[in-house]
């Protein structure tokens, strides 16, 4: 009887997984399905479950639309710039937090830093909007790059501290005893070992900056629109060109998805703030 019940649990659990897998996969499928369909097959009843007459027009439209291309390039520059800054600053601070316990007693300082990330971003962007107005940083790439440090720097600091913590202190002490300075020990021993974590941290910071909308919507203007800011206003004709929008969605979602697949373990560890190590 006990096995019968165990089996029931097992099949219920597996059933739930199947249903949920469909739930996760369906919107992804529908995005691609819509992007490859001609407009006439969109919004029909019954729905067109797969594209009849597979066509690439929507993707061609995205890649030849100068507004979309410019926005994607802006996003690329801003995300990359903020990633470089936040990873450099975060790695330095994370190293210090990990190796000099007196600058981070009980982990309180780094936790406090992380907790600033929990504050609603609108609390930051409201004053920043006016400060940037004064400083002439509105609608500039550097303005958004700096603003994105608000959420990325606490993240990179926290994650890098976590990745440094995984390297035993004795690794450095052994190098000191053998005659290496702290900097040399870092270069020869710590850096090669922390590199996978560093790459994952970079990727995650990049993805968060790439996907950001609220700050960009408020700070950017015509010169520096990111791809997220044009998604609400991309189509101006009477009929919404869903195939074009979904092609755009597919294009901009591709880099983060590839990053997830390529750096899976460390990205998952980073997404859960270091809690999950699969």
């Amino acid at each position: 009887m006990s096995t019968a019940r165990t089996n029931r649990f097992k099949w219920a659990g597996r059933g739930l997984l199947v249903v949920y897998t469909l739930f996760v996969a369906f919107p992804i499928y529908w995005t691609l399905n819509t992007a490859f369909k001609p407009l006439s097959q969109i919004g029909t009843f019954p729905p067109t479950l797969y594209p009849k007459g597979f066509q690439l027009d929507a993707f061609v439209w995205v890649l030849s639309n100068s507004r979309a291309i410019d926005a994607i390039l802006n996003s690329l520059i801003i995300a990359s710039g903020t990633t470089i800054l936040s990873v450099i600053l975060g790695a330095l601070a994370g190293y210090a937090f990990s190796r000099f316990s007196w600058v981070d007693p009980g982990g309180h300082v780094s936790f406090w830093l992380l907790s600033t990330r929990m504050f609603p971003p609108v609390a930051v962007v409201l004053p920043i909007f006016f400060i940037y107005g004064q400083l002439g940083l509105q609608d500039t790439l550097i303005g958004l790059i700096l603003l994105y440090l608000t959420f990325n720097l606490p993240l990179t600091t926290w994650l890098m501290r976590d990745f440094f913590d995984k390297i035993p202190i004795s690794f450095e002490e052994a190098a000191f005893v053998d005659g290496y300075s702290r900097f040399q020990a870092f270069r020869k021993v710590i850096f090669p070992l922390v590199r996978p974590g560093l790459v994952a941290t970079m990727m995650l910071a990049w993805v968060f900056a790439w996907n950001e909308f609220l700050f960009a919507w408020i700070i950017t203007g015509n010169n520096t629109s990111t791809y997220t800011t044009i998604i609400p206003t991309l189509i101006e004709s009477n009929q919404i060109q869903w195939n074009n929008i979904m092609a755009m969605a597919a294009v901009v979602a591709t880099p983060p998805t590839l990053i997830l697949i390529a750096f899976r373990d460390n990205i998952i560890e980073g997404m859960t703030l270091g809690m999950t190590d699969i």
């Binding site: 996969a25 919107p27 529908w30 950001e212 998604i231 979904m246 969605a249 990053i259 899976r264």
Partner: peptide
């Protein structure tokens, strides 16, 4: 691992884009 990765995919997509997709759906 494959399923974990699939379940993590939506988290990697911009919330705004996810919003557009669900608006369509």
């Amino acid at each position: 691992i494959g399923l974990l990765t699939l379940f993590a995919v939506p988290m990697m997509i911009a919330p705004l884009v996810a919003g557009r997709i669900w608006q369509l759906l």
